[in-house]
Computed example of a mutant assay.
Amino acid sequence: MDIQGILDHLPHRFPFLLIDRITELVPGERIVALKNVSYNEPFFVGHFPRYPVMPGVLIIEAMAQAAGVLSFKTTGDKPKDGFLYLFAGIDNARFKAQVVPGDQLLIEVTSERRMRNIWKYKAVARVAGNVVAEADLMCAQVKTTAKPAV
């Protein structure tokens, strides 16, 4: 799935869209997404000016966005129809290495369980085959009354 497909399945936009491409997707099971980390990312201006490191919370957010695409592709719902996936919990988050400009994050998310509108996922982010972060994520599907700007 290219960026146009991602934009169709996520409500996020610049500067908060944190995945660039989907390389694998099995609805209801797993997704593999890529994030190309560029020195031009807006967060590098302040994190840190002389030692740019991608914030760990944004790595977790990139994992959650991949999980969102997996969920939308599984249900067939889309943000334009008023559906969103919101964080309900983050457990066992671990950061094992820094992510810096020039890195490519490979994000793998597997669906562990779904109970009505609550989803549980296991997520791992790698750079050059090495694990840089991992977490267990929980999201809740909500139907909004506001019309998205997409």
Rank of each mutant, 00 (worst) to 15 (best):
Ala67Phe: 03
Thr23Trp: 11
Asn92Thr: 02
Ile118Tyr: 00
Asp2Trp: 11
Met1Phe: 09
Met54Gly: 05
His47Thr: 07
Thr75Trp: 11
Ile22Gly: 09
Ile22Met: 08
Tyr121Trp: 09
Ala149His: 10
Glu134Asn: 08
Gly102Phe: 09
Val53Asn: 13
Ala62Ile: 09
Phe48Leu: 12
Asp81Ala: 06
Met138Lys: 01
Ala140Met: 13
Ile22Thr: 04
Ile90His: 05
Leu10Tyr: 15
Val132Tyr: 02
Leu25Gly: 03
Asp77Tyr: 14
Val132Cys: 04
Arg30Leu: 00
Asn36His: 13
Ala64Tyr: 05
Leu70Tyr: 14
Glu108Asp: 03
Pro52Met: 10
Ile59Leu: 03
Pro148Glu: 12
Leu34Trp: 11
Leu106Val: 06
Leu84His: 10
Asn130Lys: 14
Glu112Gly: 00
Pro55Tyr: 01
Phe87Gly: 14
Pro15Cys: 01
Leu106His: 02
His47Leu: 11
Phe16Ala: 07
Asn130Tyr: 05
Thr110His: 03
His12Trp: 12
Asp81Thr: 06
Leu18Phe: 09
Pro11Met: 07
Gly28Asn: 03
Val53Met: 07
Ala125Ile: 09
Tyr85Lys: 02
Trp119Asp: 00
Lys78Ile: 01
Asp91Arg: 06
Phe16Lys: 04
Val132Leu: 07
Phe83Ser: 07
Ser71Val: 04
Lys35Gln: 09
Asn40Asp: 13
His12Gln: 13
Gln98Ser: 12
Asp2Tyr: 09
Gln4Arg: 13
Ala97Glu: 05
Ala140Pro: 03
Gly68Cys: 12
Arg50Lys: 11
Cys139Ile: 00
Ser71Tyr: 08
Thr74His: 08
Ala123Arg: 00
Ala33Gly: 06
Pro27Ile: 03
Val37Pro: 09
Lys147Asn: 15
Lys78Cys: 00
Pro101Gln: 07
Thr144Tyr: 10
Thr145Ala: 13
Val132Arg: 00
Glu24Asp: 07
Ala133Glu: 08
Phe14Lys: 09
Tyr85Val: 05
Arg21Asp: 01
Arg50Trp: 05
Asn130Met: 02
Met1Lys: 12
Ile22Gln: 06
Pro52Val: 10
Val45Pro: 01
Gly82Val: 06
Lys122Pro: 01
Asp103Val: 07
Glu24Cys: 00
Pro148Ser: 13
Ala123His: 00
Ser71Phe: 06
Ser38Met: 07
Leu34His: 14
Arg94Trp: 08
Gln98Tyr: 02
Tyr121Phe: 05
Leu25Ser: 04
Thr110Asn: 02
Val100Glu: 12
His47Gly: 06
Pro148Cys: 15
Asp81Glu: 15
Lys78Ala: 11
Gly76Tyr: 04
Ile19Trp: 10
Thr74Ser: 15
Ile31Gly: 02
Leu84Met: 11
Arg94Leu: 07
Lys73Ala: 14
Gln141Met: 04
Val45Leu: 10
Leu84Arg: 10
Met63Glu: 06
Val131Phe: 06
Phe43Leu: 03
Gln4Ser: 12
